[in-house]
Design a protein around this nucleic acid. Structure first.
Lengths: 212, 212, 212, 212
DNA sequence: AATGAATGAGATTTCATTCAT
DNA sequence: AATGAATGAAATCTCATTCAT
């Protein structure tokens, strides 16, 4: 039971490649069938490893699911961070955040379905430790969005609302619309929706008075 | 195998009372532990019926879950309808919709958790027929919201956006915030949040220019 | 828990009528679906009594089945006895036996299916006491046939074979052919088959030499 | 979920050996207790596998039963074919058929009990597909016997009866006597009974006139 | 290190029987 | 005496996990 994490050695590299194979298959299956609808045998078949081998990489089925969510969330967070910080605080960061989210969604549709639709259902099932860590990571993501809001408020771009509430609002709009738009899977057109979300979120749905 | 639905007879009333007892226990358990985390034995224990009796009321565990969601959704829809239609089309109806949703959430927190967090995960598990009906009911709800929006657009209260997209946005905001607010379960304060949601949704998050 | 068996009183007559109703329904169901394929609820529905009432007439489901077989066998035996004893010992009795069996089969097809096809399977299920009595009744029937054979042997009509073995042979032919013939349910034509069975059983299947 | 049927590899051989082990235990239990009287736990205990393992070999309990009957019937049919075809058409084949049946019965008493006593009761319980195949296999067996009869008729050894009816008659005699003889389980003496059956079936039970 | 057969705990579901009304 | 809702024991089947090869 050795842990290979060094990417230097060939062994280490191969280990990581196989692990990634498994997670890729898991992402597809969990998105399509949910946590309980996916068996370890399904996962073994799709990933082309034996059941036993899966258990050399992950201690439990729960750990596969948990790891998948944690790593993807980390990656998402990293991307978000990078994209948003290319821009000055304020509206530009909010726009970047919307754009980056949609782009990530396009590239990781399966993960996002799990993230949006199954995450909370899964949380009810897992042990306390995993639940806590998963929730913390999710809250860190929300916190990041809230921080972007807080800076925009400070700068005077955004009303002096509670940044956390504003963050949840934006995330709610994004998730709700993304799931809706992919009911009919027009995945490639999503980019064109950015202005709508940006506009709605910032200026609201109400009809604006004409300026003379 | 007769069905008692007439509320007139004593038998009929008692039947419905026991059935409601089971659904009440199911609501609590499914909200706390999810569909897969709840066993029929758990449900029997909490509802204080035997396992066999549960099956005199519902053919399968799935049917318990499905019935719970369907009936509550119907009831929610009815309430929404009643509240919204007391007001003239336009902004007043939107405000009523937000208020009614929050009020219903306060009174049916457990159901709402299931509805928001587990519904889509559950859909992956059930037979095609139940999945279809459940989805249709959900879409009918969204349609109702979209209709309110369409009328507000026609009246000139709301921008000429796609009503369905606006509907998903509002529902997204509501659900996201409601789950957030009840993390710390300050259920009774929720009423005071109506103005925030109404304001954010209609006028947006951006800082507004002062009028002289 | 009183037992009504006197046919004199009205109560007694009604009791017996209802009991017969149940047995009639049971005969149909057990023939169509077998012992395990028939539930007490099925029986209640078809006989138009409540489940509870069935248990006022019979202590267990097993007892319904057992009673049905026992009474019908008794009745069959009585009929056989009556018909056969109208004739002098020897070939005439054998002919009468074949005729009576086929006639009874026509009138009690359902019972006979149970008797031929399910009886031995059922014996594996029931308690020792019932099993013993059922087997004894069946053996009494075989014994009766063997007796007819013994008398025919004594008279010089039948070879000096073991009467019991000859009895099993005739019963085997009858049952096998009756089930075959009713695969296509040409129930009314069965009477015309008597000569074939009589001829085959007595003179055998072999081609007979012409007499000059 | 791979199927190992090649007898070449060690794995394949071991797989088949374990499968045969289960079927052997099943044969014993089903013969003694019937289909419904046997539980998968009984079968697990007797075969010394766990319940789960049984399900790695057979999808359902029904499949165990069905497979047992089908494979044994195939084997019986093969044996019958081989033995009968060693002889010229006519009486010699009929004798061979009786001998082979009795021999097979001696070697497979448990299976035969199931075959004769439980088969038709079981048919009432199983899904349409299994029922159809089982019945077809049984009818093929009867057809084989009928064919032997048809050839004997053509040759002039047997009366010009309906071959199928003659076949059912012989099978009826055989089954009835075999069950009788094994009530007291004098299994080893059965061989000596061949002449009786042969004689009875061909020349009939009636006393024959002395030739001068 | 990889395999996949074996395991058995645990879940759903059925149904003969009971018993309060 | 009749009812049928309630009961719970018992059966089938699944699948995450283990471990000998």
């Amino acid at each position: 039971m050795k842990i290979h994490l060094d990417e230097g050695s060939r062994k280490g590299r191969e280990y990581l490649a196989r692990r990634a194979e498994i997670l890729k298959a898991a992402e597809k299956l969990f998105a399509e069938r949910g946590f309980h609808g996916t068996t370890m045998l399904d996962l073994a078949n799709l990933s082309e490893f034996s059941v036993g081998t899966l258990y050399n990489f992950f201690k439990t089925k729960e750990e596969v699911y948990y790891t998948l969510l944690m790593e993807k969330l980390d990656f998402f967070q990293l991307r978000l961070d990078a994209e948003v910080n290319q821009h000055p605080a304020g509206l530009a960061q909010i726009l970047a955040l919307i754009e980056a989210t949609i782009k990530f969604f396009q590239e990781n549709q399966s993960f996002f379905r799990i993230f949006i639709q199954e995450r909370s259902a899964f949380e009810l099932q897992v042990g306390a430790a995993a639940r806590k860590e998963l929730r913390e990571k999710y809250l860190a993501y929300i916190d990041f969005v809230a921080h972007v809001m807080a800076k925009a408020i400070k700068k005077g771009d955004i009303q002096e609302f509670n940044p956390l509430e504003v963050a949840y609002s934006l995330v709610g709009i994004l998730n709700s619309l993304l799931i809706y738009w992919t009911m009919d899977t027009k995945l490639n057109e999503l980019g064109s929706k950015v202005p709508f979300i940006y506009d709605l979120f910032l200026k609201g749905a109400a009809k604006r008075k004409e300026k003379k």
